[in-house]
Design a protein around this nucleic acid. Structure first.
Length: 431
RNA sequence: UCCGAAGUAGCUCAGUGGUAGAGCAUCCGGCUGUUAACCGGACGGUCGUAGGUUCGAGUCCUACCUUCGGAGCCA
């Protein structure tokens, strides 16, 4: 007996096959039972007709509990009445293990209950679809950067010095030294770019911020490319090419998932480079025109401001050249003015907020020393970072893309907690 | 940390000072194409915790706890 996966069923129409799976749900009447089966690769309906099977098979089918694991043997048929297009005409059922009182019933549930049962919630259709899209974004990310001459480099997760103050870093011990969990691999990626040219990292990031919104996680995954000899405008081109690439990859390879999520794909189909750019100066003007009188030049945008700017466009939009005072020490000054820096945030449409932050980096040794002093940072802790500016420094740029925000945007999830398997949130370390 | 909302059956909720309720889940029965299937029955309660007001509190008051939504910060 050939054992197959649900996703391969279209290739086995008319054959009798064996499937291993779980019972997602069940409906039955006196003479027929419908088993909603899932095996990780997909969902399919198994049909058990009382008249066509031995008595004990029908009795077994009627008595199955939600999420019991089983092997089923049956014939693959094409059927328009099925959402998947195919069905399994079940002939045999072998129960592997019973499930008892599966808590996530077919009715609606509250978020606290679902988060407490996250280990089981992942089995449901919508969560399954989101994880598949997340995987496609990751796959497309590796493909894009590998195809464009980047080398993947893994920066450390445990770090000794605190790049930008310790308040938002998780503290731990490194034997008898203090250590912190990484909140960004950027500085290390700059060193890697000087060795390998174009590099990217993909790894976890930790922020001990007491943030409590639909856009924040305590632990999240970030993709951080860094490129030697690449200046600000060139970096923006890489960013828009990259974001377009992952969106188009999801559209092409996750059709079933996007449909199950009810995502409006017409909005995603428009996501093709180039993306619009608006300077910080013009963004402030735009906000004033829209009636926002709670922000002045020199202040950072809040979530309502970002959303208002994003609503002006039907693609992600770059907001460029922020005031030097609200950005980190390592950003390169604008060549024509000293009050703004060469940076850009990419704001996703539909209110999903900032998905990329990037900049050209300061590469001049003296300027970097000055910036460290201005930000009250310890030159000794940054000795190796400064050294990069003394040993054949070159112009270079980089950016960081937040994976979960990108997943949430592309899937239409209302909260980033659904875009990562086991979210770490304020007050949430279980399961 | 601040602002707002909510804690009643395993789950989702109703109950607005006078006998604790429904749907789902579970169990029993019915039904030949169901799509959160449907129909009948059974089982199921420290009403978040502690105090207070009242003849009487799930309901009113106070404090605390927890969660949700938003803000700030950021990706």
């Amino acid at each position: 007996m050939k054992k197959i996966m649900i996703q391969d069923m279209p290739n086995h129409v008319g054959e009798t096959v064996k499937l291993g799976g779980w019972l997602a749900n069940k409906r039955s009447s006196g003479k027929i039972a419908f088993l909603q089966l899932r095996d990780g690769s997909g969902f399919v309906q198994g049909v058990v007709v009382k008249a066509d099977v031995p008595e004990e098979v029908f009795v077994t089918a009627k008595g199955l509990h939600q999420e019991s694991s089983l092997y089923v043997v049956g014939e693959v048929t094409k059927d328009e009445r099925s959402a998947f297009g195919f069905e399994l005409q079940v002939k045999e059922i072998e129960v592997i293990a019973e499930a008892n009182n599966y808590p996530i019933t077919p009715k609606e549930h509250g978020i606290e209950f679902l988060m407490d049962n996250r280990h089981l919630w992942l089995r449901s259709r919508k969560q399954h679809a989101i994880m598949k899209v997340r995987n496609e974004i990751i796959r497309a990310t590796y493909e894009f950067f590998n195809d464009n001459g980047f080398t993947k480099v893994d920066p450390p997760i445990l770090t000794g010095s605190a790049p930008e103050g310790t308040s938002e870093l998780f503290h731990t011990k490194y034997f008898d030294q203090d250590a912190y969990l990484s909140q960004s691999g950027q500085l290390y990626m700059e060193a890697a770019a000087m060795a390998l040219g174009k590099v990217f990292s993909f790894g976890p990031t930790f922020r001990a911020e007491k943030s409590k919104t639909r856009r924040h996680l305590i632990e999240f995954w970030m993709i951080e490319p860094e490129m030697a000899f690449v200046e600000h405008d060139e970096s923006l081109e890489v960013q828009e090419q990259y974001v377009s690439y992952i969106v188009q990859s999801v559209l092409e390879n996750c059709k079933i998932e996007l449909e199950r999520l009810g995502r409006d794909t017409s909005k995603l189909e428009q996501i093709k480079a180039p993306f619009p750019r608006i300077s910080y100066d013009d963004a402030i003007k735009l906000l004033h025109e829209k009636g926002f009188d709670d922000i002045e030049w020199g202040e950072d945008f809040g979530a309502p401001h970002e959303t208002a700017i994003a609503e002006h466009y039907d693609k992600p939009v770059f907001i460029t050249c922020y005031p030097v005072g609200i950005k980190p020490f390592y950003m390169q000054p604008h060549p024509d003015r000293d009050d703004v820096v060469l940076c850009a945030d990419l704001i996703a449409p539909e209110g999903y907020g900032e998905i990329i932050g990037g900049s050209e980096r300061v590469h001049d040794f003296e300027l970097m020393k000055q910036r460290l002093r201005e930000h009250d940072l310890d030159e000794n802790a940054y000795a190796w970072y400064l050294d990069l500016r003394e040993q054949g420094s070159v112009p270079h740029s980089g950016f960081g893309l937040g994976l979960e925000r990108t997943v949430a945007w592309i899937t239409g999830a209302e909260h980033v907690r659904e875009s990562i398997p086991f979210p770490r949130l304020l007050n949430r370390l279980y399961p």
